[in-house]
Design a protein around this nucleic acid. Structure first.
Lengths: 200, 200
DNA sequence: CTCATAACAGACTGATTAGTCAATCTAACA
DNA sequence: TGTTAGATTGACTAATCAGTCTGTTATGAG
């Protein structure tokens, strides 16, 4: 899989990711990417037909990695509550440990031109979370509010925690903060009957 | 307050807001703004020294309007829970009724170049919400988690609801959805002792 | 070694950009 | 009426951009 060329291609991808995060898509000319990656202009366009194709490649790669990270230690037979709490923790940890990639995704989501087709696709990728939330509602573990609402708030809250930690305003204990955040999110969506903070 | 020139200036501001939402900051050349607003190139730069100054003006204006909307019907002597629930409702309604302005703000937040100084300033503007949350924690109405965490999640969840409604995936009853969303948010941050959904 | 194919280079181009500037218009006031 | 200050104009510019083109090097098969 590692062809002889891969290092230049990889250098472009990684340099671009960094610059996009620092300066935004449009604030980063291709010339800047090639200069920093120490490759020629032509090399970039040899691997990626357009600048947009480069952005999309980065997006798809990260999306895959993210999905992978989210699924870690999730067993279908586990109770819904545990699965959701684990997905939540996985996402926060991934975001904190992959700050640049997290920021790239945030930027991508809010880019008006791009988001149209990609937003749909991105949502579809994470439909398994949607399904788990749905199951939680069916089983009575979650409040009987619309799935879409719960899913949205779950995602937004989790992202907010990552941003808080990355901005450095989260105090010292990151692990403790993550636990507290999961409790807040869980108490919001969990059915009152269920224990507010079930045993881990 | 309405000088003789105000209409051209206003036309630029409004046209720019629309285009920025549809196409992004960098996807919108100043030439496009002036063409659509039916003013000359020079006129734009007569009122706004740079494109960035134009963006910043729009940002500051919207931020003020938003703050105004958030404060509606808030009385300092009301219990914290009611204040928070009301701010929440105010924000969601403002976002839904001012979709373009809401989208502009979202875009602004995620723009790497700009956000640096403005993000700080924006946060400071909404410190009164921060204070209410702090008071809620002190009075025992909210969970004793860090103020920053609760504030962040409060804001993120609220934004998520607006996005959900604007995307049209929220089902039919917007008012019902808002009420449900407020319950979810409140149950997340409220202290378990307090009634999960206090009387309105 | 020969040849083909893909990797790589970087000067170059046409289009586009933010921003300038000298000229003209408008309105208020003396 | 003449003067002045601000509003308005749009052709213009210098810089910059994504992407091209022509050529050179590396690799690997026969």
């Amino acid at each position: 899989m590692d062809g002889p060329h891969t290092d230049k291609r990889q250098a472009i991808l990684e340099t671009a990711l960094g610059l996009f995060c620092e300066r935004g898509f449009h604030g980063t000319p291709t010339s800047m990417i090639t200069r920093e990656a120490e490759v020629a202009t032509g090399t970039l366009f040899h691997y990626f037909s357009t600048k947009e194709a480069l952005i999309e490649t980065i997006y798809l790669t990260i999306k895959g990695e993210m999905r992978e990270a989210l699924c870690a230690h999730i067993e279908p037979q586990d109770p819904v509550g545990e699965q959701i709490r684990r997905i939540c923790a996985n996402y926060i940890r991934w975001g904190v440990e992959n700050a640049r990639k997290f920021q790239f995704m945030e930027q991508f989501h809010n880019a008006p031109q791009i988001s149209a087709h990609a937003h749909e696709e991105g949502m579809a990728q994470f439909s398994f979370v949607h399904d788990i939330v749905q199951r939680g509602i069916d089983e009575g573990a979650l409040k009987p509010h619309p799935t879409g609402l719960q899913f949205s708030m779950f995602g937004a809250s989790t992202g907010a925690v990552v941003r808080l930690i990355l901005s450095g305003n989260g105090g010292e204990g990151i692990d403790a903060l993550i636990d507290q955040a999961i409790d807040l999110i869980w108490d919001g969506i969990a059915a009152p009957a269920a224990s507010p903070t079930p045993p881990r």
